[in-house]
């Protein structure tokens, strides 16, 4: 998180560090990408380190990794009722990726990849398309039966089908926006408090800085909760795709 006293949203500006193209596609390395890589490296590095020599009686690091894995596994199995076990690695990767991207932005001078709509949108649309793909591969044209729930009177179908379709299509948007907005709002508030702390007279500096500390604590909780919500909703969408309608 970098500070700019003139623009509270300045620390969300994407800065390109290296121009790169794959044919006509722009794949430039920006601060988003750098901090996303750092997040990925952090997750892999930490988990690699604590699980390098696993022991039957775990140390602190291994215990934390096992707790994290157990937590994600429980949530996955609770929300994907049939064959949830095969989605555990995917959900664990999703959870750790979002959590690391959320948390890395709390380091002063860093950047929050999940405060970018493109990032959260990519993740949300990927989950949405994956769930839709699962449903299509399982039920074929039966995919569309989900928009006409069983037991609904035929008279109501012209009303129900559009509502169901809108609700279905809104899933990736809400999923992406929820994470993006939470991260943006939290980091903006943090930035504002920090700028306020810098701008305040010396005898009042403790007030915004004190709030900053509280806000950072709150942001850490929010980072975890948002990753959790994203994963749980992803599980719900996958479960919904696998259920018969």
């Amino acid at each position: 998180m970098s500070l700019n006293s003139h623009d509270p949203l300045a620390h969300f500006v994407v800065e390109v560090h290296y121009d790169l193209f794959l044919g006509p596609i722009d794949i430039s390395i920006s601060n988003t990408v750098v901090f996303m890589w750092l997040s990925v490296l952090l997750v892999i590095g930490l988990l690699w380190m604590v699980t390098r020599r696993t022991r039957l009686i775990p140390g602190r690091g291994q215990l934390l990794a096992e707790m994290l894995f157990g937590f994600v596994r429980r949530q996955t199995l609770m929300n994907i009722h049939k064959g949830g076990e095969r989605f555990v690695p995917l959900m664990f990767a999703l959870f750790t990726f979002i959590l690391a991207c959320n948390l890395i932005g709390l380091i002063p001078g860093s950047f929050t990849p999940t405060s970018q709509l493109a990032v959260t949108g990519t993740l949300a649309v990927s989950v949405f398309l994956y769930a839709a793909g699962l449903r299509i591969s399982k039920y074929g044209w039966g995919f569309f039966r989900a928009f006409a729930p069983k037991g609904v009177p035929k008279l109501l179908l012209p009303l129900m089908v559009p509502i169901e379709m809108i609700s279905f299509m809104a899933r990736p948007i809400t999923l992406a926006l929820r994470l993006f907005v939470n991260m943006t709002a939290g980091h903006t508030a943090l930035g504002m408090l920090a700028v306020l702390g810098l701008a305040a007279p010396w005898f009042l500096k403790w007030l915004p800085f004190g709030f900053s500390v509280l806000q950072i604590g709150l942001e850490m909780i929010i980072a975890f909760i948002q990753a959790y919500i994203f994963v749980v909703l992803s599980c719900v969408y996958i479960d919904d795709a696998l259920q018969e309608h």
Binding site: T32, V33, V43, P113, T122, L123
Partner: peptide, 16 residues
């Protein structure tokens, strides 16, 4: 920056 961000998000997540 959307294309680059989308591309690298997908790549990073897949690597992870």
């Amino acid at each position: 920056f959307f294309t680059a961000q989308i591309f690298w998000t997908l790549v990073s997540f897949l690597v992870l």
